[in-house]
Amino acid sequence: MSDDLNRLGLLDDEDIELDEAALVLACLDHPEADPTGYWDELDAIEARLDAIGADAETAVERADALAEVLAGEYGFGGDAKTYDDPANADLIRVIDRRRGLPVSLSILWVALARRLGWSADILDVPGHVLVLIGREAAPVIVDPFAGGARVSAERLGALVEAAAANGPAVTHVAAMPNRAVLVRLLQNQASRAEAAGKGRRALDLYTRMTVVAPDYAHGWWERARLELVDGEVAAGRASLGAILEITRDTVLRQRVTQLLAALSSD
């Protein structure tokens, strides 16, 4: 595991720079790549955004500047044709292809807005990811996957209602902490890898998740599950033990304790 990844796991949430973190994760899969060119690309986009949005004061004006630069000039948009392509959650490949998933594109939008000191957050909307520009004074919600299209209150409500019809009721939509965004990015990669029959790849991604977000029990559970499938019993026990160290969820603790007892009796 790289030193950069380990350092990322030790940062306070507010100190995480989303573009830097996503690039660190991508570089793990491209050891031959020189990240300098990608930093230069992001710096160039920032400079162009600074020029276009120099006079942007309102959330609407800033959202328009982001759309003009990222979607209009640089061509970033959602990959609807090959949505499940792993490249869509890999920031290096997203920059190369100008295509990505909602979460990877939202990372770019939010990171570049924050570089200019603009308020921007990623919203965890059921079944989707959106970006909130501004906060108190007339904030704007946009969809980077759709080129920065404005999302009305009615459209947001429809997304929440649709999710409620197919699962637990959603009472509110909140901004995601930076670490949760990275977990979402890794989860996208891991679930697609496992669906493609690449268990070892999925295990690597869940291992990264436990380094980036060591207090996130789900990552440890999935890591333990795949370690046990792979016959790595000692590693699986250690991952299960980590869950007991970080969670107070009584149901989960009981589940982990029962599994550890079963492993001990084997």
Results as ranks from 00 to 15, higher is better:
148 G>P: 04
197 G>N: 05
165 A>N: 06
61 E>Y: 05
46 E>K: 11
160 V>I: 12
241 G>I: 15
180 A>W: 07
49 L>C: 14
66 L>E: 12
65 A>W: 08
200 R>H: 10
147 G>A: 07
29 D>K: 09
95 I>M: 15
77 G>L: 10
236 G>I: 12
167 G>L: 10
254 Q>I: 00
72 G>A: 06
177 P>F: 04
187 Q>L: 13
56 A>P: 12
235 A>Q: 15
253 R>I: 05
213 A>D: 13
197 G>F: 04
228 L>M: 12
196 A>S: 07
74 Y>L: 11
180 A>M: 11
23 L>I: 05
53 G>A: 13
253 R>S: 14
37 G>N: 07
242 A>F: 10
259 L>D: 09
254 Q>A: 15
30 H>D: 11
159 L>S: 05
18 L>Q: 07
260 L>R: 03
257 T>V: 09
209 M>D: 03
135 R>H: 10
215 D>M: 09
229 V>M: 09
254 Q>L: 12
60 V>C: 09
135 R>P: 01
232 E>S: 15
154 E>N: 09
244 L>G: 14
238 A>S: 15
26 A>I: 07
125 V>I: 14
192 R>N: 08
82 T>L: 06
134 G>N: 06
18 L>F: 03
43 D>N: 13
23 L>P: 03
217 A>E: 07
126 P>G: 02
162 A>M: 04
91 L>F: 00
240 L>Y: 15
208 R>H: 10
141 I>M: 00
21 A>H: 02
186 L>R: 07
243 I>N: 12
108 L>Q: 03
113 A>K: 07
48 R>Q: 11
75 G>P: 11
53 G>C: 12
185 L>Q: 11
163 A>E: 02
87 A>L: 07
228 L>I: 09
227 E>N: 03
83 Y>R: 00
151 V>N: 14
126 P>S: 02
202 A>S: 14
67 A>I: 03
181 V>L: 14
